[in-house]
């Protein structure tokens, strides 16, 4: 956030991020991604301590680092209730998405309950895809999804902070 000069009647410029954002889009997107990864280490939830299923993601990403030119999207629609009982189903979906080498869109509009295991899984998925320079977006996150992600300090990493009442 940029400051203004001493005589200014505007203490700080709330729009300064727009200029920063343009710089990133022009040339340093990778730096921004790395910054996101670094920041997550300071979050309340230590994603490195997530369940075994998360480690499997890393194994998959290690053996499939190539990026194909195919730009058609891979869509995943999240269920209303996401908990430890069905996290393996989501894991399988994410695994397939990771193997497809396509941009991944995750529709979180219907989510009414989401537990820590699921959010951790999504967080690690996001981390790994960032490392692979793959495009992943969580679209239309519901209020509950955003609220839970914030509670665990994962809203920034999952990029669901800039919401429009459950749309984005």
């Amino acid at each position: 956030m940029s400051g203004k000069n001493d005589n200014s009647l505007i203490g700080f410029d709330p729009l300064a991020w727009m200029s920063d954002d343009n710089v990133d889009e022009d040339g340093s997107r990778q730096q921004q991604q790395q910054k996101v990864i670094d920041e997550v280490k300071d979050e309340q939830v230590d994603v490195e301590q997530a369940p075994e299923v998360i480690e499997e993601f890393k194994e998959v990403s290690d053996v499939s680092p190539q990026i194909e030119d195919d730009k058609s999207d891979c869509k995943i629609i999240l269920e209303s209730v996401l908990n430890i009982q069905n996290v393996t189903v989501l894991y399988d979906q994410l695994l397939k998405a990771l193997e497809s080498n396509k941009p991944v869109e995750i529709d979180a509009s219907a989510v009414s309950i989401v537990d820590t295991a699921t959010l951790q899984l999504l967080a690690v998925f996001k981390q790994e895809t960032v490392k692979l320079l793959r495009e992943v977006s969580i679209d239309f996150p519901s209020d509950k999804f955003i609220e839970s992600a914030r509670l665990l300090g994962l809203a920034d990493l999952l990029d669901v902070e800039q919401s429009a009442a459950g749309f984005f």
Binding site: D13, P14, L15, W17, S137, Q162, S163, A164, F168
Partner: peptide
């Protein structure tokens, strides 16, 4: 200005999606 900042975030998100 503060409100505009938030709204531009939303608009950019829409543009992307």
């Amino acid at each position: 200005l503060q409100g505009l900042s938030h709204m531009m975030g939303t608009i950019k998100r829409f543009e992307k999606v």
